[in-house]
């Protein structure tokens, strides 16, 4: 379905004999990886309700989606949540990352540990915990609570991405600025932050996509009306085939794939090679 042929190209380096088994496995893997996504996209254009027989090309499920006020409200809410969580976690995450890299004291290592907690805790635990916190503080679950919870768990991603970038910066550039009379704050604002701009933009896009797509945390912290789009999708597909969901799903796939591709290639736009290090956290 994708580029299994590319995997079959002659090796540039490494072993001269190609392991046939591993190659076959890779081709099969790519096929299976894209099959479910392909099915959703294909049947979103089906004129029938069936998910097994493709009749004619039709846009009726997309029309249905745009006429479904509940789904449109959910889409609006998800976009709002993603925007607010993006802004909030960027401010808190970038400052935290700067502090963590530069500040070597006991508070710094404690903050570093706290920052890692969301990354090693399954989402259901953090979801349950956030819900209990809001209930315990008598805050009614709503769009606002989803935003608060999403900010909390996006901070870690921003910090992890930014921290390695900050550590890779040459501190002498900042020193030079200060030797030329800049205060530390000016050096930070005029020298360091511009150098970090590509990574900041890339993590902004990444956070937007992650929060928009997030289901578990949103599920535990949302009120009844409106509900974020993934939560709405979940309740719809629990009860069987819903062709409209194919259309919504296709639109979401296109959206998040575009965003992730953008996040990966932002560093290239700024003339730096590669963008995949963003994902490995290096």
């Amino acid at each position: 379905m994708t580029t299994p042929s590319a995997a079959a190209r002659p090796a540039r380096r490494g072993t001269d004999r190609k392991p046939r088994f591993a190659l076959a496995m890779t081709v099969a893997f790519f096929a299976v990886l894209y099959l479910p996504i392909g099915v959703v996209v294909l049947y979103s254009f089906n004129s029938q309700k069936s998910l097994t027989v493709f009749k004619d090309f039709s846009l009726r499920w997309y029309r249905d989606f745009f006429h479904d006020q509940l789904l449109i409200d959910s889409l609006g809410m998800s976009l709002q949540v993603a925007l607010v969580a993006m802004a909030g976690s960027l401010v808190l995450g970038v400052t935290l990352a700067l502090g963590l890299v530069r500040c070597r004291n006991r508070l710094g290592s404690l903050a570093g540990l706290i920052m890692l907690v969301p990354l090693v805790t399954p989402e259901i635990v953090t979801g349950v915990a956030s819900m209990l916190l809001f209930k315990g503080m008598q805050i009614p679950l709503s769009t606002g609570t989803v935003m608060l919870a999403e900010i909390t768990f996006s901070i870690s991603y921003v910090t992890v991405i930014l921290r390695s970038r900050i550590a890779a910066l040459n501190p002498e550039v900042e020193e030079a600025a200060m030797d030329l009379g800049a205060t530390r704050w000016q050096a930070l604002r005029l020298v360091t932050l511009p150098a970090l701009l590509p990574s900041i933009l890339a993590s902004a896009v990444l956070i937007f996509a992650l929060v928009f797509d997030d289901f578990v945390l949103a599920y535990f912290t949302t009120g009844v009306d409106p509900q974020p789009l993934p939560v709405r999708i979940y309740s719809a597909i629990r009860f069987g085939v819903q062709p409209t969901i194919n259309a919504v799903g296709t639109l979401m796939l296109v959206g998040s794939i575009a965003l992730i591709a953008l996040a990966l290639f932002i560093p290239r736009l700024f003339g730096r090679r590669g963008g995949l290090d963003l994902l490995s956290g290096k």
Partner: peptide, 12 residues
């Protein structure tokens, strides 16, 4: 594709 919505992928 891994970043595509988890629910949509599971549904597919």
């Amino acid at each position: 594709p891994f970043f595509a919505n988890y629910l949509v992928r599971m549904y597919g």
